[in-house]
Structures are given as C-alpha cells and as structure tokens.
C-alpha cells in the first residue's frame, strides 16, 4: 500500500485514499494467495501484483508473507538458483483450501456490492 502520497493531498482526497486503502487491505490476502500457486520471491511478487493493478510496498508484503508462513498458509524455501540466494514462497495445501473458500466468498460479496450500487 503506497501511502507516501497521502501527505500531499487535500482533505477530501485523503478520505478517499483511506477508504480505498481499506478495500485494498481486505482483498490483499486473496490476491497474494492467488499469485503463489507457483513459487515466487518477495520482489517478484510485488511486480506480479503491480501488473495486476495491486500496488503494495515491501514493508507491508514481507511481514504479511512471514505471518502467512507461520500460519502454514504458505511454505518458503531459500533457493540458490540465479545470481543470489532468494526466499521463495508458495501456497500450501491448507492455503489452497483457504483460497478456494475465500474466492467463493469474494464472489458472493462482489455480487452483493454490485447489486447495492445499482
């Protein structure tokens, strides 16, 4: 969540950005899990998410990945392929199950919200 820009905005924009941040926080987990069906390292994941339109900074993502690993939702591995050792994360079995359930719920929510906005 690149929140560095917030300081330079006016009041209304700040409220908007805060609300948008809330939405992004809520969907972050699903987005991260969805990209880790194959192994990726932190920096790679940031780029992947950015390509998909989700901007997130290192200081949010890395601790999140670590917490998810502690909860057995992700697994990690230090790999020495390439020029430097890198820590690769991928989704665990438990994580895959979690993602499936979250996707269902996301579809439900998204449908409800669309209806409410109509």
């Amino acid at each position: 969540m690149s929140s560095g820009r917030i300081d330079t905005m006016n009041e209304q924009d700040k409220k908007y950005e805060n609300a948008v941040l809330e939405i992004r926080r809520g969907t972050l987990l699903i987005c991260v899990l969805s990209q880790l069906k194959s192994p990726h390292y932190g920096y790679e994941l940031i780029q992947l998410l950015a390509t998909g339109g989700i901007e997130i900074d290192q200081n949010t993502l890395y601790p999140l990945l670590r917490r998810l690993e502690e909860q057995n939702i992700l697994t990690s591995d230090w790999s020495v392929e390439g020029s430097r050792p890198r820590k690769y994360y991928s989704i665990s079995d438990e994580g895959t199950e979690l993602l499936a359930r979250l996707s269902e719920e996301w579809n439900r929510i998204s449908k409800s919200v669309s209806e409410m906005l109509a």
């Binding site: 390292y41 932190g42 790679e44 890395y62 670590r66 820590k87």
Partner: peptide, 24 residues
C-alpha cells in the same frame, strides 16, 4: 530467531530493487 532470516530477505530484496532499476 527471526533476525537472520528477515535480514537476509531484506538484503536480497534491496538488491532485487537495485538490479531492476539500475541493471545487474
């Protein structure tokens, strides 16, 4: 316990960022 791993990962990501912006 976490210090070593977090430090390595952090350093690795700094180099990743340097590489992607300024080349290897």
């Amino acid at each position: 316990k976490k210090r070593n791993d977090i430090g390595r990962e952090l350093e690795s990501s700094i180099y990743d960022a340097l590489e992607s912006r300024f080349g290897e």
